[in-house]
């Protein structure tokens, strides 16, 4: 069985899915990722699905699970690079990927992870650049 590699870049774990995953591979990725989050103490996970030409309900469920598991382990997950045809198909399929943050590309995904951390620790952010121009900030639970 093939395995999906997980890369650590700074404070972020990057998973770039490049193969047509079997269900087993998908479940393995879910396990591997949980272990790596704990082992590295990273607070952000970016899953790049640019190369995936379909996302079916199984992979959709895997993405939701990863997001929920990461949340429990104090990490923010962002799914990036979903193709238009895949998004259109998911809507038709009825899969809403609730609870998953998405971004157009890896770069925007990283911004999103950073923003999420900033929301959580607004104090750090102010110390970092002193800006307080985001009216959309919501208090985190």
């Amino acid at each position: 069985m093939e395995r999906v590699p997980i890369l650590k870049i700074g404070e972020i774990l990057l998973v770039s899915i490049q193969l047509d995953m079997s269900d087993q591979t998908a479940l393995q990725l879910q396990e591997d990722l949980a272990e790596r989050i704990v082992a590295t103490g990273c607070h952000g996970v970016i899953i790049d699905i640019t190369a995936l030409d379909i996302v079916d309900s199984f992979v959709g469920r895997m993405l939701s699970s990863i997001a929920s598991i990461s949340k429990v382990l104090d990490a923010e997950t962002v799914v990036v690079g979903m193709r238009p045809a895949v998004a259109i198909t998911l809507v038709e399929l009825g899969l809403s990927l609730n609870g998953i943050r998405t971004a157009l590309n890896v770069e925007r995904g990283m911004e999103l992870v950073a923003d999420a951390r900033a929301d959580e620790f607004p104090y750090d952010d102010e110390l970092a650049d002193g800006s307080d121009d985001d009216p959309e900030t919501t208090s985190s639970p």
Binding site: P84, A85, T89
Partner: peptide
């Protein structure tokens, strides 16, 4: 079309599973 391919392959994946 690309969208139709994607829809069909996705449906096939669900049904094969």
């Amino acid at each position: 079309s690309l969208v139709d391919q994607t829809k069909l392959v996705t449906a096939a994946s669900e049904l094969a599973r």
